[in-house]
Amino acid sequence: MNTEQPGLRERKKQETRNALSWATIRLVVERGLDAVRVEDIAAEVGVSPRTFNNYFASKGEAIAARHQERARQIAVELRARPEAEPLWEAITHAVLARFGLAEGTGEREPAQQWLDGVRLMVSEPALQGELRKAVAAAEAEFAAAVAERTGTDVERDLYPKLVAAAVGAAMTTAIGHWLHASEPVPMAPLLRDALHQLATGLPTP
């Protein structure tokens, strides 16, 4: 008799998915996209190539999955914020929390493996299509969370989709600034500043 709880099965599946995604990023950073086979990734995680194909349709999808999952977790975090908290304050807390930059966490910088994944996605032309799909899926989920919080309709109202698109653009811009800064800068203030400027209506500097 199988006594394993569905929640545990789902966690194990998610762990395998995450491991395959991180292994793809790690190997592609080391060898280049074209030099890495699905068999190599599967062997790195200790599963079969068929298992990889059960989770991902391509190496690009496996790489972009890390971005999509982080963005999806921001929506989860937003839903968990106190109902009385102002929207943009809740959004800022949600974004910083999922980047591991929330107050009280020491505001450490993002992990190197995540940074490697971001650099891959923005620099490798073959990954741009998967990145766009990941961004679209993440924005849709975030828009739904904004709609729930504001009592708007994600299908009929512009507001939740505008907020989701704006937040996505703010994160992309802050991350790009962080990646290409001539001197090292901490990410948390960049994210806070980008979201604050949105919250105040992007006033003229």
Rank of each mutant, 00 (worst) to 15 (best):
A174H: 00
R81I: 00
T150Y: 07
L158Y: 09
N54T: 10
L96M: 09
K12T: 06
N2F: 11
R70I: 03
Q128A: 11
V95L: 07
S48T: 10
R149Y: 05
S182P: 00
E77K: 11
E124C: 12
M121W: 00
E85F: 11
A90S: 09
A35Q: 12
D34F: 10
K13S: 15
Q73F: 08
L127Y: 01
H196R: 13
A188I: 08
E148W: 06
R192C: 09
V76Q: 13
P203S: 10
A137M: 06
Q68S: 10
T51F: 06
E155P: 00
M1Y: 13
E4I: 13
L191T: 02
T105Y: 08
P205V: 07
M1S: 15
P184I: 13
S48Q: 08
H180G: 09
R17F: 05
L198I: 04
G46I: 00
I63E: 04
R119C: 12
A75H: 01
P189E: 12
M121T: 01
P82Y: 10
E30I: 07
G32L: 07
A144K: 08
T152L: 15
E148L: 14
G7W: 02
E15M: 14
E77Q: 14
E61N: 11
Q14D: 12
F99G: 04
A57Q: 14
F99N: 03
L131A: 08
H196N: 09
A143I: 02
A71R: 03
A43P: 00
L198V: 05
L33F: 13
F99D: 09
A75D: 06
A136C: 00
G201Y: 04
A181Y: 04
V28I: 11
W22N: 10
A147K: 02
A194D: 01
T150E: 14
A137G: 01
L27E: 08
G168V: 01
L195W: 05
I25K: 11
T51N: 10
N18Q: 15
M121S: 07
D153S: 13
P160K: 06
P125F: 05
A138Q: 00
G104Y: 09
A84C: 09
A62Y: 04
P184W: 12
F52N: 00
V167F: 00
W114I: 05
L120G: 04
A94S: 12
A94Y: 05
A143W: 00
V185P: 03
R79L: 15
L101H: 01
L198E: 00
A57S: 14
E183N: 12
E183I: 12
R156K: 14
T51C: 10
E15D: 11
P205W: 10
P184D: 14
P82G: 12
G106E: 05
L78E: 01
D40M: 07
F56S: 04
W178T: 02
E130R: 09
N2P: 15
M187W: 03
A75M: 09
F52M: 02
P82L: 11
V38N: 08
A137C: 02
L120V: 00
P203K: 11
R149Q: 02
N53M: 14
T204S: 15
